[in-house]
Design a protein around this nucleic acid. Sequence first.
DNA 1: GTTTACGTTGTCTTTCTCGCAATCAAAGTA
DNA 2: TACTTTGATTGCGAGAAAGACAACGTAAAC
Lengths: 305, 305
Amino acid sequence: MVNEIPLKYLYESARQGTMRAASEELDVATSSISRQITSFEKELGISLIEKNRRGIKLTEAGQLACTFYRERQAHDEVFLSRIGELRSIRSGKIDLAVGEAFITDEFSMLLQQFMQNYPGVFVSVKVSGTNSSVALVRDDEAHFGLIFDTPRDPKVKARSKVLQPLHVTAHPDHEVCRKKVLTLEELNKFSVGLPEESFRIRQIIHLAEHEQGMFIEPSLVTNSMTLLKDFAKYGRGLTILPDFLAQPELSQGKLCAIPTDSAVLNSTHISLITRVGRQLSPSAYQLLITVEGYLKKSFSSNHEP
Amino acid sequence: MVNEIPLKYLYESARQGTMRAASEELDVATSSISRQITSFEKELGISLIEKNRRGIKLTEAGQLACTFYRERQAHDEVFLSRIGELRSIRSGKIDLAVGEAFITDEFSMLLQQFMQNYPGVFVSVKVSGTNSSVALVRDDEAHFGLIFDTPRDPKVKARSKVLQPLHVTAHPDHEVCRKKVLTLEELNKFSVGLPEESFRIRQIIHLAEHEQGMFIEPSLVTNSMTLLKDFAKYGRGLTILPDFLAQPELSQGKLCAIPTDSAVLNSTHISLITRVGRQLSPSAYQLLITVEGYLKKSFSSNHEP
DNA sequence: GTTTACGTTGTCTTTCTCGCAATCAAAGTA
DNA sequence: TACTTTGATTGCGAGAAAGACAACGTAAAC
């Protein structure tokens, strides 16, 4: 709309007092400066300078133009510095979508660590079911997400997967803990707690039931993973969980986890998901790498890129 | 600092969703748009768009750039509209320097009239002696000025002059009013009031004294033109004034004015002065024309351009 | 009258921007 | 799977914008 060159030349000429001095300063020919200013005056339909023997002097309009130029410079600088910040991971907000209660102590430690390392970066975590987490990532409302199992949306793909089988989880004194492997059939001999239908874990269990042509009759159904864990912890029955959800208790020996013979339950994954084609900001990308490293380290087992 | 073309293309592409549509809208080739955006990304060191099958989508940095573009547009518009106002006499402040008590009723009427005709224009009048009025005009602290006699500064020239002789002014009953012309010698027979040395009128009177090789002994010296006028009006003596300063009383017959035989006193002028080379804003120029017209009309006599 | 320090104008060169056509890439569609 | 459609990218030549350099015009200062 308003070309920058004449503004720059006008400004420098006014600052120096003569076009000649400005031409030295700007390292362009005096003739260019003269011409640019002249044509700018013609364009605006008003004269910007008057000529003395000793050089030039701004008219009111010229002063207006110089003020305008300085304001524009300031505006440009703000823009460029914001871009610089964006480029160098010094700022920005990162939205994370996390499904199925991934918020373990270890994970929140990881986030806090990251925010300490990159002050100025704000991380927001939305916890919800697997399906809505996938939706958040698809609609760019989250930069990336962490879900159980794999995404079922063509716009969203798993950037990396970590094997995380579903295990039967029970109190160490429970008789199932004496076994190395359990069949699903055996479970119906005991009291079983399972998540609600809306949970991906429950949907996978349904698949396993279908696979083996049987049906588990739960005596507890809940939407609280904690309640489910307590159900097993206090010896009231069995439940089926990925190890990471029972993590502190497993290592403290307050719970035990027994694999099943179900191919479906043994091949479940944790997926780190992104929208296909999405360009992440450098800060978001950095966090993604961090989380990815954490997954690979924590869940030792094999992973696919 | 930040080139406008890529911003414009980026903005329109984002608005339309595809570069193709933007190219139609902007009437440039798609290739140009693609190239401009690519090179802009390279320049900023960050990517601004991501590509879908269905077109493009802004990254965070891209959104920042578009916001920046809109802000710049707004800023440009403000500037251009201010320039427009300056061009079309819709705004601005005009400073006037007026020497030697020119502020007659008629003159202040004229200014009020002008300010009514051009609302948004503010006129400021500085009243001072001739010399300091000239200084104000020379230093661009006044757009133009009105002084008695001619300027004595090479930087300041009279744009137009109106003949305004100095006349002996007295009460109508005073005996000098019976004469058609007075010699300066005759004045010393009466009581005479004169302005202070700092007034140009007084300096001119000194010239006239020198011209005729004589010397007027004033019985009153003051810096108040009103006092001087009253001195004559109430019959206490004579004074020497240009007619316009005694105007209402002259036409009402409360004072009479008699020419002298002094060439100096008969050839004095009112000058409308400007700094040489000064470009006046259109509003100031308009007022100048108005004042010039007033001078020529009011002081009927001959004038030089 | 000469010098000096400016801005302006004419002409050629360089750089930027653009348009056109060919090409590449992704997502429907038969 | 191959084909079509739609949109972005790339190579190349044309035209416009900006710049360099030299000659000129001009007003103050010496």
